[in-house]
């Protein structure tokens, strides 16, 4: 019984790490722009397919394909920000960029469909078949890579935001865009940088998810709604909170599957979300964001 709980806990942590990578991009962008990019899910999907292309068409190494996916994600982030968010910045209705990204999402998904077809792609790396057993527990090599890459990315991101000048400037822009601008920081460039980092993380997440998910052009949609929930549970714009919430949601999914029924996962996760919003809307780790309370 205890062993079972630990095993499911491990499963949950692996899944949670994937969610964290996807959700971090959303929360970073929200932090500086107070905007949601609905095409984020499709960055994940395109990252996954980029990795597929590198490994299966170019016969590159899987780890190389992770880098490729990140790069593709970064490029997409640059394009979407340049085309949609930057021009509409400060121009009133905060909903317009949101709907515009819905349009972009529809285009990306159906463009991918036209290009790649609807048949699910089987993405198998040599790591996903390799099972590592330690005592009664097991992890696939793929899971180990997921944990390692996610942890590295998180540590690097955290270090960047906390200790480098650029990172601190980013946090300043997130706190108060106008004042940051007055202090000689170029908010537009920093917003672009944030977008690029966030979207690169999404692409990377997609590449790690590719062997796990059913890989079709609509693969992003199953992840994105949970990512939204994670961002809220963790607190919009809050990095530590998002990480914690992501891991928590992964664990909840695994435990719900074990104890209840996989079909009830969404109810449990979103029930938790609504409960959080009623009880503690600022998120798991409260930050000073009064205007949304």
């Amino acid at each position: 019984m205890f062993v079972l709980a630990v095993q499911q806990g491990l499963n949950g942590l692996v899944l949670g790490s994937l969610y964290v990578l996807v959700a971090l991009g959303l929360t970073l962008v929200y932090g500086v722009l107070v905007q949601i990019n609905f095409a984020h899910a499709d960055f994940v999907m395109i990252g996954a397919f980029s990795a597929y292309f590198v490994t299966h068409a170019l016969h590159g190494d899987y780890l190389l394909s992770l880098a490729a996916a990140g790069a593709v994600g970064a490029l997409l982030g640059y394009l979407v920000n340049a085309a949609i968010f930057a021009p509409l910045l400060g121009k009133g209705s905060e909903l317009r960029p949101l709907i515009a990204t819905i349009g972009v999402s529809v285009m990306l998904e159906n463009g991918a469909l036209a290009l790649l077809g609807p048949v699910p792609y089987a993405f198998a790396t040599r790591y996903s078949a390799e099972v590592i057993r330690f005592g009664p527990l097991y992890l696939t090599a793929q899971s180990v890579i997921i944990l390692a890459v996610a942890a590295t990315a998180i540590v690097l991101l955290h270090g960047f935001l906390r200790f480098t000048f650029l990172g601190k400037a980013l946090r300043a822009v997130a706190q108060d865009r106008e004042t940051a601008g007055l202090m000689g920081i170029a908010p537009d460039r920093l917003i672009m940088l944030t977008f690029i980092i966030g979207s690169a993380l999404a692409g990377l997440g997609g590449a790690l998810l590719a062997p796990v998910l059913v890989l079709t052009p609509f693969a992003g949609t199953s992840v994105i709604v949970k990512a939204f929930a994670i961002v809220i549970i963790g607190g919009f714009g809050n990095i530590e909170g998002t990480i914690l919430a992501g891991l928590l949601v992964g664990l909840i999914e695994a435990m719900t599957t074990q104890v209840l029924d996989p079909g009830l996962i969404d109810i449990v996760v979103f029930g938790l979300l609504l409960a959080m919003l009623v009880i503690r809307p600022t998120g798991l780790i409260a930050e000073r964001r009064e205007e949304n309370v």
């Binding site: 079972l4 095993q7 499911q8 899944l15 998810l209 949609t221 599957t257 996989p262 996962i265």
Partner: peptide, 11 residues
């Protein structure tokens, strides 16, 4: 739209 069947397999 289940993302991951590992938990089901473990169960």
């Amino acid at each position: 739209d289940v993302n991951d069947f590992t938990a089901i397999a473990t169960r």
